[in-house]
Amino acid sequence: MAVEGKTIDALSQFELTPVLGAVGRSIGFSQSNMHMLVAGLLIVALLMVGMRARAVVPGRLQASAETIYEFVQNLVVGQVGEEGKRFFPFVFTLFMFVLFGNMLGLLPYAFTYTSHIAVTFGLAFIVFVLITVVALARHGMHFFSYFFPQGAPLWLAPIIIPVEVVSYLSRPVSLSIRLFANMVAGHVMLKVFATFVVLLGGLGVIGPFVAALPLAVNIALVGFEVLVAFLQAYVFAILTSIYLHDAVHLH
């Protein structure tokens, strides 16, 4: 798949293919959805198996489950305040779903569902609907004052209001494109350098020595991608929290 006719094909890794045979084809269940399911099962397993002991002094798995729990809780409460506890399960689900999607995608032969703009936009759209509904439910019509900051001169309204509306509407776009672009760029880079390894490795006697160079780059890239995978999940979660703060407090 990586090398087809001695050309670099970095994009076919993102193609959707049905899994589970005929059943999967009939319900449109692709390998992307399979990875979502695996990620979800891993998340539930981490929490359920990790917390099974309910120990006062936690073991390794329980400690990691508790660490992630408190990490996300501090993030949400720190951004939104005490009212944010209501949204904690949502932000936690979002953070874990994106984090596990990014991390699973780094395994060989795995598919990265966060590298699909449709998936990231779907998640960002849920966030957008949530923050709008929360803001409308809490503030009613007063919510629309969000688009015109207090104290601004009235004659600036024709400029400020369109800018604020566009910036509000572009939130799901920027949120989804940031994650999508980061994951695609990382995986394309990995694939390109991996293809270099194969191509250069076939250059006769010196091949293996030259091929060591892109291999070293790829090793460094994998470490870098682990960082990006965590960072993008964190950014997704913290931006969601900031938007929730805006929805709850209006500025």
Partner: peptide, 18 residues
């Protein structure tokens, strides 16, 4: 279908977690 399954899986995950 990917988006539909995403919504189903994400919703289920949210339900189980919360």
């Amino acid at each position: 279908s990917q988006i539909v399954w995403l919504m189903i899986i994400f919703g289920l995950l949210y339900f189980i977690l919360s």
